[in-house]
């Protein structure tokens, strides 16, 4: 009986942990996606007129973001996410051993 109780308690604790893990994951995803949209749709397209004052090699910073910068930031984002999530997996003990 006592054993059963502790098992239920453990089960509830795991479920709570899983919820917190997922919430943390979703938060990291949201932050990453804001940066993702900012460098491409933002700097590369919609905000380009605002960046037109910053000259880069015969054109402006917006052009650089559209053809080079956004891609470099995308790369950084994916590696950041993989590193951060693998750390999070360990913090919550949900990594694959």
């Amino acid at each position: 009986m006592a054993d059963q109780l502790s098992q239920t308690a453990r089960h509830a604790a795991t479920q709570k942990d899983d919820k917190a893990y997922w919430a943390a994951n979703v938060r990291i995803i949201l932050i990453s996606l804001v940066i993702w949209a900012l460098v491409s749709f933002g700097f590369g397209i919609l905000l380009r007129p605002m960046l037109s004052g910053i000259a880069v090699g015969g054109t402006d910073l917006g052009f650089w973001f559209a053809q080079q910068g956004s891609i470099i930031v995308f790369l950084a984002l994916i590696f950041f996410y993989a590193w951060r999530m693998n750390k999070l997996d360990k913090e919550f003990g949900v990594d694959e051993e």
Binding site: S32, L33, W36, S40, G44, A66, S70, I71, F74, L77, I78
Partner: peptide, 8 residues
């Protein structure tokens, strides 16, 4: 942007 941003 489109064909690389999709990987994110």
């Amino acid at each position: 942007m489109g064909w690389t941003g999709g990987y994110v």
